[in-house]
């Protein structure tokens, strides 16, 4: 266990070179659905980053301290999902109580995140790539931040295009898919910047 890699490098790699949504195409559904305007995109991005960072750590502990010693690694998918769902539920109550203003911003997006595949994807990458605890923390945050960056970028483009004269056949998902494709190509430019996946 433990690749000799600087956690900070992993974070940058997760955010840019192997961006969760633009290189791995995870979390596409909410990426397309919630990117209509920047305010909601920002809220969801923040929530994803927050949850991804904390569930990475939480699932790391569950995986290496419960599942591995008991040889129950094959249960990981279901256990991860349960942990994520319970954690989101808990987080929602906590935020609702202690920071109503943050709850206003994240509120309706938190439950959505339970079924966001970017979260589960992040956790599984962490296991597959044998990250240690510190690396997992930075990886989780980096992946989330990358997702956040991508959705905010997409939403600003969509908002600008709203005023433009677009062929009717392309309005909506069609144009969005094209934008995402071009964004993915642009992000390809980052590859080689950091020599890890």
């Amino acid at each position: 266990m433990g690749v000799p890699l600087n956690p900070f490098v992993i974070m940058v790699a997760a955010a840019l070179t192997s961006n969760m949504v633009l290189s791995n195409f995870l979390g596409m559904c909410s990426f397309i659905a919630v990117s209509k305007d920047i305010k909601t995109a920002n809220g969801l991005g923040m929530a994803v980053t927050f949850v991804l960072t904390l569930t990475s750590v939480l699932n790391y502990l569950v995986y290496y301290y419960i599942l591995v010693p008991l040889e129950l690694v094959y249960l990981r998918y279901i256990v991860f999902i349960i942990v994520i769902a319970a954690f989101v539920q808990f987080l929602e109550m906590l935020i609702d109580r202690f920071s109503p203003s943050l709850y206003m911003n994240l509120g309706i997006f938190l439950p959505l995140i339970t079924v966001n595949c970017a979260i589960l994807g992040g956790v599984l990458f962490m296991i597959i790539r044998d990250y240690n605890l510190m690396q997992s923390l930075f990886f989780g945050f980096g992946s989330g931040a990358g997702w956040w960056l991508a959705i905010v970028a997409l939403s600003t483009m969509r908002m600008r295009l709203r005023e433009k004269d677009i062929p009717p056949q392309l309005v909506g998902p069609g144009l969005t898919m094209i934008i995402i494709g071009i964004m993915a190509l642009a992000f390809l430019g980052f590859s080689g910047m950091v020599p890890v996946q």
Partner: peptide, 20 residues
């Protein structure tokens, strides 16, 4: 294990619900 994890999480949530 599965039951245990679920039970612990459920307990945390119920306690949190009652307190928060």
């Amino acid at each position: 294990v599965l039951g245990g994890i679920s039970a612990v999480l459920a307990a945390i949530i119920s306690v949190a619900d009652a307190v928060l």
